[in-house]
Design a protein around this nucleic acid. Sequence first.
DNA 1: AGTGGACTGGTGGTCTAACCTTTAACAACC
DNA 2: GGTTGTTAAAGGTTAGACCACCAGTCCACT
Lengths: 255, 255
Amino acid sequence: MSEGVVAPREPIKRDPGLFKTVSSNRMSEAIVEQIRSLIRSEQLRPGDRLPSERDLGEQMGVSRVTVREAMRVLEAGGLIEIRVGARGGAIVTTPNSNKLGSGLADLISLSPLTAAEVTEARQVFELGIIPLVIARADERDISDLREMVAQHQQALKKGEYNMQLSAAFHVRVAACTHNAAIEMLVHSFHGPLLMSLREAQVAAPLMGVRGTNEHRDFVEAVARRDVEEAEQIMRTHLDRTARRVGRAKAARDNA
Amino acid sequence: MSEGVVAPREPIKRDPGLFKTVSSNRMSEAIVEQIRSLIRSEQLRPGDRLPSERDLGEQMGVSRVTVREAMRVLEAGGLIEIRVGARGGAIVTTPNSNKLGSGLADLISLSPLTAAEVTEARQVFELGIIPLVIARADERDISDLREMVAQHQQALKKGEYNMQLSAAFHVRVAACTHNAAIEMLVHSFHGPLLMSLREAQVAAPLMGVRGTNEHRDFVEAVARRDVEEAEQIMRTHLDRTARRVGRAKAARDNA
DNA sequence: AGTGGACTGGTGGTCTAACCTTTAACAACC
DNA sequence: GGTTGTTAAAGGTTAGACCACCAGTCCACT
């Protein structure tokens, strides 16, 4: 009797992402979504200025505090920039990989990822793009790279070579793919990584000489469209970095 | 006369980062920094509950509104989770790749990247990790993958196969590298991609059959530790996806 | 004529003090 | 024993006020 009738079924568990879970019933969140979608649909473009908090609140029928919370979220997400004072207000930012990189850096430094893991991911990626680099690098790319290497070797002689320059080289190489996503990823790899490698750099000042030489050889391999050689050089180059990360970590662990 | 005397020099431009630009003066930002550093230094650990907004404001000598803005920023950054109701409050979250991935997805989807670019980056990365996958996949990984493939083929028969399942497979493959950074990256690739592919999926219902078969073959290649074969299969698999993205874009452009 | 300084209006930043909504826990009731 | 109401604690929202900041304007003094 008690069993047969309309068994009290479990709440539906399948299709967990079906009902757009959404809402959270937070007005500020709704505002965030609205503005975000306006930006996404390009009805709001980088450089545009949003109405003032007071106006926005009035137009949307919410209080200023609620609008402000939405602004905080959008600002934290790097979508808008907020300026105070006359002619201030919220301004839609041009999304750049810097923002993305710094956001990434924050999350990475707070996440349980180790520098070794990130380095390995970077190795995989930077090696993987080499065929694309070689297939797509044009004259401009190659002459840029050659010039960059020359400058770096100059800087090295003056003792001004540093990780930033090295990072710039790797980013420029990635740019040879003419794929903004790849460039951006490599760019962000070199953000948090720099932080965790700065200590390592001090302990390994020789990196500069070998590193820049490898950069030079790599560029020439690209110029010759020699995939094998380029990969070989880059693999060696990145492996050394990886080992350095490993050593830095070991040193820190012992300290 | 008027030229020679104490030329009105330009304001000093060198050392642009000398005066540390005085940060923000925003109290809420100071609170964010304080709590963030508490989390970073592990004085606050995942699962810990922060004091209530009212208490926090009292302890820090600021109003509740200000505390709330800080909470919004921390929440947006994925550092805390906020629950309403009794025993609610701000809880330090365990940083997981989901949070990071969704943040990434947001930035990617708002940046001027095309689906094709992201897809290509994904191809590079997912192909690049295959040697690692094969080197490190253990028994557990392989049996998990086999089981997953079986489930997906079941789902396919019932017409319940979808992009989410496919994405889950690729993420599980990445997890075989036992590198959290790699897993996270692949995970985040499959966020925005899903969005841009949903339309494509409707137009290409056959994907499921071929796709799951390729998944199956790939897993067996991994089980045999056959790098060449695995790479070959995955390359074909990803190429088809890439072409589908291209077609979807073309269709959209024509519409 | 040119410069410096005060003024003004609009903007974000913060505060106060209230009220509403949601939720877990507990107590009371059937 | 299970359901249901109550309560207290938490976040969510509102309204109104005040302050700090900043660009532009204008005026007085040099």
